[in-house]
Simulated scan of single mutants.
Amino acid sequence: MEVYNDMEEEVIELHLNESAKGFLREAAKWAYFLSILGYIMIGFFVVFALFAGAIFSSVGQMMPMGQMGMFGSSFGMIITFFYLLIATLYFFPIYYLNKFAANLKLAFKSNDSAALASSFEYLKSHYKFIGIMAIVTLSFYALFIIGAIVVAVAAAFNH
Rank of each mutant, 00 (worst) to 15 (best):
L85Q: 02
G72Y: 03
Y83N: 10
V151G: 04
G38Q: 09
D6M: 11
E18M: 14
F100C: 02
A134M: 15
F51I: 09
I149L: 15
S35F: 01
E13C: 03
H15F: 13
F48T: 11
A28H: 01
G60D: 11
Y39M: 09
K105W: 00
K109F: 07
A27M: 06
A102T: 14
I78F: 15
E13I: 12
D112I: 07
A134C: 10
F144G: 06
M1C: 05
F33Q: 07
F92T: 01
R25H: 05
I40K: 07
Y32L: 12
H159G: 15
I145G: 02
S113T: 06
L104Q: 04
G76P: 08
Q67M: 15
K21F: 02
F51S: 09
H126L: 08
W30K: 12
N111R: 11
A156K: 14
S58L: 14
F45C: 09
H159N: 13
I94Q: 03
I36A: 06
F23R: 10
M41A: 11
I86Q: 05
L104G: 00
A102K: 15
L123M: 09
H126Q: 08
S118F: 03
T88G: 07
M77P: 00
N158A: 15
P64C: 00
T137V: 11
I36S: 06
A114N: 12
G131I: 06
V3A: 12
A155Q: 11
S58H: 08
A152P: 04
H159C: 02
F120T: 00
G53M: 14
L89E: 00
H126D: 00
I149Y: 12
K105G: 01
L85E: 02
E2D: 12
F71T: 05
V153Q: 06
M1R: 08
A52T: 03
L34R: 06
W30A: 03
F108W: 03
F81P: 01
F33C: 04
N17P: 05
T137A: 13
G131V: 07
Y96N: 11
F33V: 08
L24K: 00
L104M: 14
M7Q: 15
A49T: 04
Y83M: 13
L50K: 01
Y83W: 14
Y122L: 01
M1Y: 07
E13H: 13
G22Q: 08
F75W: 10
G38I: 05
I149R: 07
E10Q: 15
G66H: 03
M65Q: 10
K109I: 04
M7V: 07
A155M: 13
Y39T: 04
T80F: 11
A49R: 03
I132V: 15
Y141A: 13
A107I: 05
Y127R: 08
A107M: 06
D112G: 04
T88W: 10
A101V: 00
M63R: 01
L24E: 00
L50T: 05
K105E: 12
G22F: 10
F48M: 08
L14G: 02
S118K: 15
F56E: 05
Y4Q: 10
Y141W: 13
M133F: 12
E2F: 08
Y96C: 02
V11A: 10
S110Q: 13
G53N: 09
K124I: 06
Y95V: 07
V11S: 08
K99G: 00
S19L: 15
L116W: 02
S35L: 07
F144Q: 04
F56R: 02
G131S: 14
F140V: 13
A152I: 09
A152K: 10
A152T: 11
L143P: 06
N111P: 02
